[in-house]
């Protein structure tokens, strides 16, 4: 019932049933509303977070299974070039899918500094966007990758 995990660099202890969805813990116990409920079925990607650096669905993930692990949510990206790149490209319409997409993009850029368009498409293919902002989202991830490379050189 008492589970310790690291969320966005902060160690937290949550009192929740072992099988409580990680998404509910993030949103309701920790007040991190950036991870979003879309289906609860691991089909749409609105709830995507990083668990030990890997993009994972949080909507059906039992919180006990992330005990002792590092969880990152979109709230952790305040200074990451991805956030600005998405704003620069106006990469969204309603924006509901974006927080999950940002996390998959973060996982990609952490492991691949120079992803091709095809790499980005593959990394985001688990995500649904209903508004049709896909081309802008792909451009934004490319732009963030370029900004990261630029930052690494300077």
């Amino acid at each position: 019932m008492s589970i310790e995990l690291t969320v966005n660099g902060r160690t937290v202890i949550v009192a929740a049933a072992d099988d409580t969805p990680l998404l509910d813990v993030l949103r309701n116990h920790l007040d991190l509303k950036g991870s979003r409920y879309g289906c609860g079925l691991e089909q749409c990607g609105s709830c995507m977070v990083l668990i030990d650096g890997k993009a994972e669905y949080s909507c059906a993930r039992e919180v006990a299974s992330v005990a002792g692990k590092r969880v990152e949510t979109v709230e952790s990206l305040a200074a990451h070039p991805l956030r600005q790149a998405f704003l620069d490209e106006q990469a969204g319409q309603c924006g509901y899918c974006l927080s999950g997409i940002l996390m998959s993009a973060k996982a990609l850029l952490d492991s691949n500094k120079n992803p091709s368009r095809a790499d980005i498409v593959t990394a985001l293919d688990r995500h649904l966007c209903r508004c049709g902002a896909h081309p802008r989202i792909l451009r934004a991830v490319e732009k963030a990758a370029a900004a990261l490379r630029e930052g690494a050189r300077s």
Binding site: K33, L87, S99
Partner: peptide, 17 residues
Amino acid sequence: PRKDLEAKVSGAAFIHD
């Protein structure tokens, strides 16, 4: 640019929140 997108890429932004 749209102002409302800033919250939508950052955290709470919707009725759900």
